[in-house]
């Protein structure tokens, strides 16, 4: 699916989430919610997210010129998009390692954590990955598809904690510090 269709569909179409109130899972004291957004230009069998602690790995996909968008519970701490795997055959997997790209974000307990968009691109012989800061697009989708989370939790920036844009986006009528 083209990236453009991702943008327009998720912004303007109605998924099931917006038609009925979602039940928000309960958070433990050391847990927060994270907005997970991935777009893969090319095949990505499994996109792996790793946090600290045993068993704190999460897998998303498969994707192939398509997107993933969800809000999930994560333990507070630092996370890293560590690798993408693709099946070669029944017993063999091929890995694209991402650790050296420093694709990290933080999750704060009790908050709705914005984590950016992981953009993965591959043409079989090479790959690239980066985190893009698409706050307005992703928060607009979250407001549309997961409004209960926006309404009930403070949104924090898990990739650029000092960035003022989220505040500006969610409280647009208020003047921001520094404006003359």
């Amino acid at each position: 699916m083209k990236l453009s269709i991702f943008l327009s569909l998720l912004l303007y179409s109605l998924y099931g989430y917006s038609q009925e109130k979602a039940i928000i899972p309960t958070l433990e004291d050391d847990e927060g919610f994270a907005i997970i957004a991935i777009y893969s230009k090319g095949k990505a069998g499994q996109v792996i997210l790793e946090g600290s602690g045993f068993g704190n790995a999460h897998s998303f996909g498969p994707l192939n010129y398509s997107q993933h968008f969800s809000v999930i519970k994560l333990k507070a701490g630092t996370y890293n998009w560590s690798r993408v795997s693709n099946k070669v055959d029944n017993s063999l997997k091929q890995y694209s390692k991402l650790e050296h790209l420093n694709l990290n974000f933080e999750v704060k307990a009790g908050k709705l954590n914005y984590t950016g968009l992981l953009m993965y691109e591959t043409n079989n012989s090479s790959f690239s990955a980066k985190i893009l800061n698409r706050t307005s697009i992703l928060l607009a989708i979250t407001k549309q598809d997961f409004p209960e989370y926006i309404d009930n939790f403070e949104v924090v920036n898990g990739i650029y904690p000092n960035d003022q844009y989220i505040d500006f986006f969610l409280n647009k009528s208020k003047p921001v510090v520094g404006e003359d």
Partner: peptide, 14 residues
């Protein structure tokens, strides 16, 4: 990135 365009779009709409 297209996010630049969307940020302005949302600000103008608001």
């Amino acid at each position: 990135d297209i996010e630049h365009g969307y940020r302005l779009r949302f600000a103008l709409q608001a």
